[in-house]
Design a protein around this nucleic acid. Structure first.
Lengths: 217, 217
DNA sequence: GTTAGCATGTAAGGAGTTACATGATTTT
DNA sequence: AAAATCATGTAACTCCTTACATGCTAAC
């Protein structure tokens, strides 16, 4: 008990939604398909799977080829599938729109499953992410405006590059948000609609957020 | 003992090199000046400082205003400075050019202290970072080339954006490396030379790296 | 028949966070 | 004199990694 962390749970449930999988394959997808680098290790994944099974959210799938699991000693593939409870839990996780869905470590996973997420939640997460990045942009700008002070040239260059990265990601989010709003207006169209916008208005940008720029203890 | 982690040690020693500081101020600089978001908490910093002091790498600085530290109960600012051993240790850390200096969590800190780092080490770190990113770019490209297969449009968009981010950072590193090489050729010039290049050749790019694309257990 | 890659797992521990607890100083 | 912010510290806990240990299966 207690080995189940937020984002890993969502990622596993989400991937198993598409198809039953065993741990080894699951890990590979976790490290590529999801915006999740940091290469999750087996030492994290397997205990998490055991825990999800213990809670009844996933279960062992009957292997299609019969003799896949030799009776000797319990070795061989263990293929997991979602249970009904697991599907419910997944829906709950997918409709959460809060800091736990738009911070660095989690945003990518939530985004990757937007295909299973309702339009309202998608928008809320994108906007939450954007305002998080706007905070960060503000921190960078503040730091850079003091450049003539204590910053040596390498530190300044690092800040400059960081600021540009954040600005780029904000523009990306602006485009995505515009596309999502577009979908809302004419909700017809096919189910799987490409999120790439034709030409984004590049919203006015700027204005400092009124948030803690130092992320308190 | 054992509360001292790699990158935090470097960051603290590096900042104290510039000027003696107390923990609270140290933390603020850690979260802005360094490319280090993730907002380090006091719960990490203070034990680390205690540990660094126990090892003799930092020491309490005599406060310039005498009565800063009231005798009652040991409260008030504790200003730390580098010891001679701390300076030595810092030099050792700064001349390390290995994975521990170019991974995501550490590269920013090493880069921020390039002003204290010798030219050879700077180049080695920049090149190490670049080849790390080239691996990642390869992973992204591989994942994207299978787009027509299992990737839904949101997952594909996430990969596309991730790939662009990596490509952008590789270009940045190419420019920096070119600048550093330029400095090597004519090693005259002022001590603090701005790292921004005039116009980078944008090296030919591409070619898949021969490295583990899955970062093994 | 042996190497390489697939596959599952456990134990120990590292690196950090949150929540708590306290007190000093500055501002309103 | 209350509130905000500066400042230091501890205990419990979380999440994850490393290193280890085992065995199966395909390819050479």
């Amino acid at each position: 008990m207690g080995r189940r962390s937020g984002v890993l749970e969502l990622a596993v449930l989400g991937l198993l939604r598409e198809a039953p999988l065993h741990g080894y394959e699951l890990r590979k997808r976790l490290n590529t398909v999801l915006g999740n680098f940091h290469a999750l290790s087996y030492g994290s994944l397997y205990p998490a799977l055991r825990d999800l099974q213990a809670t009844g959210l996933i279960a062992e799938d009957a292997p299609s080829e019969p003799d896949q699991r030799p009776l000797t000693g319990r070795r061989g593939k263990v293929i997991y599938k979602l249970t009904a409870e697991g599907k419910e839990r997944l829906q709950d996780l997918l409709s959460e729109a809060g800091p736990e869905s738009w911070e660095d470590e989690t945003f990518g996973v939530h985004f990757a499953f937007f295909g299973l997420t309702d339009a309202q939640t998608r928008l809320a997460i994108l906007e939450g992410r954007r305002s998080r990045l706007e905070e960060r942009r503000h921190t960078f700008r503040t730091a850079l405006s003091r450049t003539r002070e204590r910053l040596d040239s390498y530190t300044a260059e690092l800040q400059r590059h960081g600021l540009e990265s954040v600005e780029r990601e904000v523009r990306w989010l602006n485009e995505l948000i515009a596309t999502e709003r577009g979908k809302e207006e004419r909700p017809a169209a096919a189910a799987a609609d490409a999120p790439r916008p034709p030409a984004a208005p590049t919203v006015s940008d700027d204005a400092a957020p009124a948030v803690d720029p130092q992320r308190e203890n």
